[in-house]
């Protein structure tokens, strides 16, 4: 059985204007943070969005959370466009799509008790009576492995891992269908990361919630996701089921990312692909393939034409001329 498509992102673009001066503003161009990307997430599945800083993964998650208006393209949740929603329809959307962010120190209000933070989203969505909300908070804290009486405590009384559990409880409160997880474990200690990753998987298995996991750590992505999309300078360069991708990496940028994963055991093999230089500015991305300035396999054609995503094997999409003939 093919699981139903929950989220569909179609040719999404977000360009930020860059201007100079205050009174007589002069346009300097656009930062193409997200430039024509498409993907889908099925109900109960996890899509991993991988890439380095500035590649557009956070902008993508903001667009999906309806915190930004796209320049072009659309995002559909259960077949309905999410941008342009107002009033009750927008509130309904907010209940369906929630988020957990990287830093558990800044994502919780220090002046609210944990119970109040969780209740907030229930009150906004008109969840039920005070009694019902209190019951739901107890249930949620139990689900994320905290004790019911901890609802009366303040965020500073908790450790980083516990705070991330609280953020997750707050996200789960309105029974969402989709949770955007923006680097949910990278601020945590190694021994705590495993606890949170196991918890996320347990919740998904029970509630059939879909995740969009924004991450830079490939081992985490391999462990958590069903599909993986690799982004570079606002574009998806490779997109495939995680199992397929990790077994057969095709795009040179993805290869470089994989090669930069440090070994789990000591070895001193020197066949690493070390990329020269930094990621170019998205203000004036290079013409042709955006990766050609750093690509060890670049050809003359790569500077002239921009490769498009195409299917190399069933479900495995790559945008690179090297794999065009296949």
């Amino acid at each position: 059985m093919i699981p139903e498509t929950l989220l569909r992102v179609e040719r999404l673009r977000k360009h930020y204007p860059v201007t100079k001066g205050i009174l007589f503003t002069k346009s300097l161009g656009f930062v193409r943070a997200v430039d024509d990307i498409s993907f889908t997430i099925a109900a109960g599945e996890t899509l991993g969005l991988v890439g380095e800083s500035g590649c557009g993964k956070t902008t993508t998650s903001k667009l999906i959370l309806n915190l930004e208006e796209p320049t072009d393209g659309q995002v559909l949740l259960q077949g309905k466009p999410i941008h342009g929603l107002r009033g009750e329809a927008l509130r309904e959307y907010r209940a369906l799509a929630q988020a957990v962010f990287q830093d558990p120190w800044s994502s919780l209000n220090p002046r609210m008790t944990v119970g109040r933070t969780i209740a907030e989203s229930l009150i906004v969505t008109g969840w039920g009576s005070g009694e019902e909300i209190a019951e739901r908070i107890r249930e949620l804290l139990d689900q994320v492995g905290l004790r019911a009486e901890q609802a009366m405590q303040y965020p500073h009384e908790f450790s980083g891992g516990q705070r991330q559990r609280i953020a997750l409880a707050a996200a789960l409160a309105s029974r969402p269908k989709l949770i955007v997880l923006d680097e949910p474990v990278s601020a945590l200690d190694v021994s705590i990361r495993a606890q949170i990753m196991n918890l996320l998987k347990d919740i998904q298995a029970r509630d059939n919630v879909a995740y969009l996991l924004v991450a830079h750590d490939l081992a985490t992505v391999r462990h958590m996701t069903d599909q993986t999309a690799v982004m570079y300078l606002g574009r998806i360069v490779e997109y495939a089921p995680t199992k397929l991708l990790f077994g057969n990496v095709l795009h040179p940028y993805t290869k470089a990312l994989f090669s930069a994963v440090l070994p789990p055991r000591p070895n001193r093999q020197e066949d690493e692909i070390v990329l020269a230089g930094d990621v170019p500015s998205p203000l004036n991305p290079p013409g042709g393939c955006r990766f050609h300035t750093r690509c060890p396999f670049a050809m003359a054609r790569c500077a002239r034409e921009e490769p498009q995503l195409h299917e190399v094997e069933p479900g495995h999409l790559v945008s690179c001329f090297l794999h065009e003939a296949a």
Partner: peptide, 20 residues
């Protein structure tokens, strides 16, 4: 041992992570 075991791996089967 626990620290090394709790890190997700790039190869091998995907199992539940070991936690401390």
């Amino acid at each position: 041992r626990a620290l090394i075991a709790s890190v997700p791996k790039m190869t091998g089967p995907i199992e539940r992570l070991y936690t401390i």
